[in-house]
Amino acid sequence: MGLPNALLNIDRKFIFAGVALSIAIPLLNPIGFGTSVTRQVQNVYDFVEKLEEGSTVILSFDYEPSTMAELDPMARTLLKHLFRKKARVLGMALLAGAPGIAESILQEEADAAEKEYGIEWVFLGYVPAPTAAMLRIGEDISMVYPTDQYGTLITEFPLMRSVKNYRDIDLVISLSSTAMPQFWAQYAHDRYGAPVAVGATAVEAIRMYPYHDSGQIVGFLGGLKGAAEYETLVGQPGEGIKGMDAQTIAHLFMVLMIVIGNVGHVIERRRGKSS
């Protein structure tokens, strides 16, 4: 067997157990790592901070339960900030699995901030054909959403009487695990001039850099770290900061496994050469 073989052939059960422990232990016993703030997150925060009282913001829940661990903390902390700034929030969803998540988060955060439905926030619900909906909102939002999620005509809400299209929207925020933020940037911003901010999973956030540098989006929150950074800026620690402990230990564990694998690989290669 030998040392290289032992290092190269660690049973996957041990790796799985290591990942489980490196995630579970920090979640049960928080360490409290701090996190620095990137300029992409700072830009979103600064933009929201500059919103005037009564500004209108679209918060689009473009994700399903599979990625809620990364995106729910973003939704919560963004809503806390928006409600604190007395912005009016239009919640919507462009994926079929999103309304159930959006409904709970919007209701809980609005209740916590004591915001009144129909005046300070509305949940418009799900519509199919995302790109058509984004473009149609640029003309007339009531053609996409004649009613809210619960069937009430949107014209009955005081909030919606002053909102016709993107000209009345001060910021669009897309929380997504898909390519949806790119479409928001291309249609809502490029065609209609609406400022767009993004909250994306860590995998999807990689795509956002060119859009941010070109000014097509004001900034973005990338993965759980993005949520933790925003929680730090807002000053209300939540699931993002809590999750960073687990993510830190899990990443260290993965790097350790990669190092072990490579040590075994180097020893084996040297032995092969010498023999």
Binding site: I101, F253, M257, G261, H265
Partner: peptide, 30 residues
């Protein structure tokens, strides 16, 4: 939705952490 679909979908996605760790150990070689 809250007690079946959400946990089921989240659990399926979270399995990625285990497979990514195992795959990076085996594939990330110099």
């Amino acid at each position: 939705f809250d007690y079946i679909q959400m946990p089921a979908q989240s659990s399926m996605f979270s399995l990625l952490a285990f497979f990514v760790a195992s795959a990076s150990y085996r594939a990330f070689r110099a």
